[in-house]
Amino acid sequence: MLNLDLNLLVSLHHLLRERSVTRAAQRMSLGQPALSAALARLRRHFGDQLLTRVGNHHELTPLAVRLRPRTEAALAGIERVFTSEPVFDPGTSQATFRVLGSDYAMSLLGGRVGRLLAERAPNVRLRFELHNPSVIDTAAEVLRDVDALLLPHGFLADLPNLDVFSDTWSCLVATDNPHVGETLTMEHLAELPWVLTYHSPSAFTPAARQLQMLGIEPNVQVVVESFLALPSFIAGTNRIALTQTKLAPLLTAGGEVRALPCPYDAVPLVEALWWHPTHDNDPEHAWLRSIFAEAGQQLADTAVDAHHRQPDIRD
């Protein structure tokens, strides 16, 4: 490490992002010869071209593709080190937090967390990024490079966590699905085609896994690693899907799909914030956790208010 020039890390980051020496030099306010020299040093260090010309543009080599997320994580870690303060003051801090989660978690919490940051920490930055199954498989290692992971209970163990909010499950069907009336039955679940989210041995929807335990093997036609994309694969078809009840109003707003109660007692989910034990006593991280806890409480309060505003059909 003593022989490494960490300025090369910044050059590598911009080169991999821009895939062009000219654009990367402009981004860094450097002359092109200086960045070309940096690229040459990086190529010697890695024993790899990193950028290869294809026609009139450059593409990343396989090694460069692997280096890109590692470079971004390394820069974020370095920034956290050199922006650390003896006493954390959110009002003046310029810290950057990186949190991974699904589009479901971002949709429900993102706006609330963003408003809290704007009110209390206007200079703090939040990088909210989508996770994927490989992140879940290697969560203990991934959490060394990111601040937190939003994920329901049932996938991780032996890591510190904070419950943020809970949710139940509903089923989505096309509004014009001729096979489904006002309710869904277990026969519908067994016979109609499905859109499943995160359908793999390590990444799955617990409520969908529960179906298999009940003896129903879903006829899976589509697998998508997104909850917000579900309506696109259901509208105008006979497909059905499971979605979180708190997300259902957003997914059905366009009118092409509708949400119905599950015909079985689907296991509820508890969305939690997970982090690496090294962050346990970090005042910056403790403050971040408090922001997510408050956002989760706001979400719960909104759901209660909405329930109380619903008319009583007995009146």
Rank of each mutant, 00 (worst) to 15 (best):
G154K: 06
A295H: 02
Q310I: 09
A306C: 11
P193D: 01
L150F: 06
L130S: 13
Q221T: 13
N219I: 11
P249C: 10
N3Y: 15
A248K: 00
S11E: 04
Y198D: 14
L50M: 03
T245D: 15
N161I: 11
D305G: 10
D315W: 13
R309S: 14
S290R: 15
L269D: 05
R43N: 07
E217I: 08
V270I: 11
G91C: 10
A121G: 09
S290H: 13
S93E: 05
E18G: 08
D167A: 04
L39Y: 06
V173P: 01
V257T: 04
S107W: 02
Q244G: 00
D301C: 10
A74K: 01
A174P: 01
Q26H: 13
W169G: 02
S166L: 06
A64R: 00
P62D: 08
H307P: 09
H188V: 03
H279A: 14
C262I: 11
I78V: 12
A293W: 09
F88I: 08
F82T: 08
E225W: 15
P69I: 04
A139E: 00
A64C: 02
V224R: 06
W194A: 02
S134W: 10
L269W: 00
L214E: 11
E85F: 05
A148P: 01
G254N: 07
L39R: 04
D282Q: 08
F88P: 01
T168K: 02
M213I: 07
S226N: 09
A203M: 04
E191R: 15
Q94T: 14
L260W: 03
L108V: 09
E187G: 14
N161Q: 15
L247K: 01
G31L: 08
D280A: 15
A300H: 12
